[in-house]
Design a protein around this nucleic acid. Structure first.
Lengths: 142, 142
DNA sequence: ATATGTGCAAATGCTTTGCAACGCC
DNA sequence: GGCGTTGCAAAGCATTTGCACATAT
């Protein structure tokens, strides 16, 4: 089954020192910077395996890129993510869960599942000034 | 500013005859099948422009592919999508909107936005039998 | 031993872009 | 006639995969 390779441990170790969601490539670069020698494909493969086994939390960004981080809460929960820095807060919304189910059932849907992600600017990036200072163009996709 | 080209009208016209969300490529193929001659890049460019101006509804599938369809309701709303056939129902969840904002602000986030999509099996595909009949593996990624 | 995991580079699949030709306004 | 638009093919990106080699167990 699952083996304990230097690379896999290194990936888990790197993730354990990260708070926010990072992309596979960011994680790979981080590791390279830390002196680890791991192939990018290996990072991808492991992130896939680890998230499949529930050890990682996956978040699909607006552009389809997958972001990973170590699970804090293995149950069903949602994320509040800072668009600027990736800072993430997990939260539960029990009322939401039940009303989603209710709406779905009203329309004859069963076996219901949903995805909810909230994006915003955290307290460190919430001023319009800060934003304007860094970006000249403001009309990018997203 | 914005011009009225044969291609642009054709795209809108094609969309107006579609009920469900389709990818840029599907739309392009549909048009080709209908005898329209439009470049794929043009389809992409127009879908982008049209959705940016709020005339189209965009949904990002789990794998990052963008799906489009003509707006029914131009305001903020969510989708209940059948995993099997793509049948889509739009719905509003005002309570949700406010509680999302509340949660976000509690954590110091501003300029908040969110994505919520609900997936399930519509009345035509809701029986477990039907499912079991078609899929042997059940462990795909979500 | 041997099934798993790894590295690399090539392949994929969706989407974007450079650039010359085109055609609305 | 000028500038938004189009087409095509090439480029981009994130991710996946084929395959030979390495390595946990």
């Amino acid at each position: 089954m699952q083996r304990n390779t230097r690379q896999r441990s290194a990936i888990l170790e790197t993730l354990s020192r990260q708070d926010d969601f990072r992309s596979a490539q960011q994680i790979h670069e981080q590791m390279k910077a830390d002196g680890e020698t791991v192939g990018l494909a290996t990072v991808y493969r492991n992130l896939q395996v680890l998230s499949r086994s529930g050890r990682l939390d996956v978040l699909v960004a607006g552009d389809g890129e997958s972001l990973y981080r170590q699970c804090e809460d293995t149950g069903h929960h949602h994320h509040l993510v800072c668009r600027e820095c990736g800072r993430t807060v997990e939260f539960l919304a029990p009322k939401l869960e039940s009303s989603m189910d209710a709406i779905a059932h009203e329309h004859g849907f069963t076996d219901v599942d949903h995805t909810l992600e909230v994006f915003g600017l955290c307290s460190d990036h919430g001023t319009r000034e800060a934003e304007a200072a860094e970006e000249e163009g403001e009309d990018q996709a997203r």
